[in-house]
Design a protein around this nucleic acid. Sequence first.
DNA 1: TGAAATGTTGGGGCG
DNA 2: ACGCCCCAACATTTC
Length: 477
Amino acid sequence: MTVLFWFRNDLRLADNPGLFEAAKKGQVLPIYIMDEHLSDFKMGSASKWWLHHSLKNLDASLDCKLNVYAGRPMDVLIDLVKKHNITAVYWNRCYEPDRINDDSKIKAYLKSIAVECQSFNGSLLWEPWEVLKGDKTYYKVFTPYYRNGCLKAGMPRTPLPKPAQLSCIKDKDAITIDALSLIPKIHWYDQMEETWQIGEQSALNRCESFLNEGLLGYKELRNNPAKRNVSRLSPHLHFGEISPNQVWHAALAVGTVRGVENDLDCFLSELGWREFSYYLLYHFPKLPRQNFQPKFDAFPWIQNEGFLKAWQSGQTGYPIVDAGMRQLWQTGYMHNRVRMIVGSFLIKNLKLHWHHGADWFWDCLVDADLASNSASWQWVAGSGADASPYFRIFNPVLQGQKFDADGEYTRCFVPELKDLPSKYLFNPWTAPDHVLRASGVVLDRDYPRPIVDLARSRDEALLAYKEKVMPPEPVDF
DNA sequence: TGAAATGTTGGGGCG
DNA sequence: ACGCCCCAACATTTC
């Protein structure tokens, strides 16, 4: 019999539950479908670039038997099931709301024509519908969700090996990966090619080298954007080149080293935050567009194209913000600490809606992920579940001084300021003239002055929050 | 997974 | 020696 296995965000052979089961049944028709019609969130440019390379890599590991199509999955699957006498269709579940709806239609249709259809869990440690509070509602606060919901529910499944026997067939009518035109015409991704190694083996290597070289000290050093104490696994996890189960168990295996316990717990809880994002998206499908806390609908966001362009292009006049935005543009990635800083700045100092930040990240990030992106922007905005309180406003000068004290990260991405002493690196407009001269910096010419005043924009944001968002005090007679 | 304002404390200079 | 002021260093409160 021939089983169709539909690859989605699980572009790997090891620990792939759907593929593992398909391979046991007989011949496998492995396919990937590029569906550009499903949701409002079309895949961004950086993600497409990554996907291109990831598909090439997967194809190679399948002896060039990956079958690629473009179109609506329902149409593609119906054709293939007829043409190849498919008796079963397997896939690993996706959790984006539109994908869930479409998948359930497909599953119902396949069952109606007597084709076996099974979905598996290949990308989450705990199923969102299985983790509930005592009253059967879903958790809205991370810590109880993670500790009482997830961890007490049991240890995540241990990873599966690659299928022992995998006999794939090639469909002559499949198109090539190149025909998907995933690589942009404009050649802006040179530095991305230098930054990333894509594919299943690279993901495993990245995981191993992080655990060996970056886990010790993770809890503190992960906040320093110049240090290599973050895993940088997010794009690999997004495309499923590695599963969270593989990461979880690999981390546990090295977590027996003395002195690393707190670092390990902290790292595992970051996988927990990824789960929490999917969990929130599952239970609150409007998360990508709608404030999780509706009271934030009343916040007076402003429209300002100039502010948005300055933020996107890394020309805000705040070096740590600009460094982050340029890292994003050049490498398709931004360090987590800096994501929080630029997010806080966009929302609270510029007072632009978090949608603008989420949309830009969606297009630029190689790890763009609907669940993580939506949940994290709402977290920064204060409108999310268990969010950062609105009044927690980052000061980009202090954040730079605190987490990039020697300026290594900022100098790398804002090279026009590289000769400024650290004392003035994060607030160059306060530098005395002779210091600017000695560093070869002319403000406005080489680097912009701040586009907003920190203290004033902060006060305005707090006032707007207090007046428009905070519920009025009940009047007590 | 803040920052700024405000409050408290204690040592040292000084009349 | 004593009280007073100043201010740094923390701690607490507030947004």
